[in-house]
């Protein structure tokens, strides 16, 4: 057996990158097995694009290493094992879609035929359109076609559905599913938890240049879907707070207790029944961004727990890896 057959599709070790004063990526480790569909979830500036650039060999990391199928990124690209849909631009002006794909295919050792590429990307109907006349969504599909040209084992997509309307987005994910069903590895970046959860087997959450969570879509949803009940109690008697229904974690700030809940209604009913001294109760729900930021900094006031502690206190079906 060839070494590259057993090697992980992607192995990032200790990737670190700064641009001047901006520390974009801070020690990212990630291993993706062949056949996995992985979402990079995070907001703008989380380090998704920089990590992807380093993964593809477009940017050199300050520290750390990239291995794709056991080789370096450049060798994997030259070998036609990697196809990528870059975030912006990337379409040459003055040519038709077919000419663009023909030119791009000429630069690969064993590319798909242009007809096949057009078909797989579902853009046969716009083959004769000039690249400058494409709508945003159509341009995205052409970029997807470029990624398919090498017939890659690993497909990397940097925010593929930006500028797509609902219908095109649905068609896009349908062609993606078809592609990944053949056992190929897909790694895509997205802002949307729903998109990550719907399509990926595994969601890697990046925030402020770090991997802050890594698990199934369900586990990430459980993590960020939590509400926090804040309550002031007599600190002399707080036993049993963490066994209230729906509570997954308890944090204390003086007399104030932060109860992280999967079902805050249930928790509050039980809390009021059990504790007559409960006062100043408030419920807050974290949005995705707050949740990510909380995950990056375990000492932040609204931070429920550190990622490490999350491992133990999330529900079984949402266990983090």
């Amino acid at each position: 057996m060839n070494n590259s057959d057993i090697a992980p599709a992607v192995r990032l070790s200790g990737l670190d990158k700064s641009f001047g004063a901006v520390h974009a990526v801070r020690g990212v480790d990630l291993t993706v097995r062949p056949g996995e569909v992985v979402a990079f979830l995070g907001h703008n500036g989380a380090g998704k694009s920089t990590t992807i650039d380093m993964l593809l060999g477009l940017t050199t990391p300050d520290r750390g290493t990239v291995h794709l199928f056991g080789t370096d990124a450049r060798a994997a690209v030259v070998g036609g094992r990697v196809g990528a849909m870059l975030q912006s631009g990337a379409l040459l002006p003055d040519v038709t879609v077919r000419q663009l794909l023909t030119t791009f295919a000429a630069l690969h050792r064993s590319p798909l035929s242009v007809g096949e590429t057009l078909e797989r990307a579902g853009i046969t109907d716009i083959a004769a359109t000039k690249t400058t006349a494409l709508s945003g969504g159509q341009a995205q599909r052409v970029r997807f076609a470029l990624a398919l040209v090498p017939d890659p084992d690993l497909l990397v997509l940097d925010e593929p559905t930006v500028a797509m309307d609902v219908e095109i987005r649905r068609a896009f994910w349908a062609s993606m599913r078809e592609y990944s069903a053949a056992g190929r590895t897909v790694l895509f970046a997205t802002h949307y938890l729903e998109e990550a959860d719907d399509f990926a087997d595994r969601v890697v959450v990046l925030a402020e240049g770090r991997v802050v969570a890594d698990g199934t879509g369900a586990s990430i949803k459980a993590l960020v879907g939590h509400r926090t009940v804040t309550v002031t109690l007599d600190p002399r008697d707080t036993d049993g707070l963490d066994s209230l229904p729906g509570v997954t974690a308890v944090d204390r700030r003086g007399d104030t207790y932060l109860l992280r809940c999967t079902d805050s209604d249930l928790t509050i009913r039980a809390l009021l029944a059990a504790r007559a001294d409960a006062r100043e109760i408030s419920i807050t729900s974290a949005n995705l961004e707050d949740a990510f930021l909380a995950l990056t900094d375990p000492h932040r006031a609204d931070a429920p727990t550190s990622p490490q502690t999350s491992r133990t206190d999330t529900p079984k079906n949402g266990a983090l890896r």
Binding site: L58, V77, G80, S88, A90, L91, L92, F104, H108, R109
Partner: peptide, 17 residues
Amino acid sequence: AVERQTGWNRQLRLTAL
């Protein structure tokens, strides 16, 4: 310059060229 500005040369770096 056009290829640089549109990002096309980044795309080209993902080829065997």
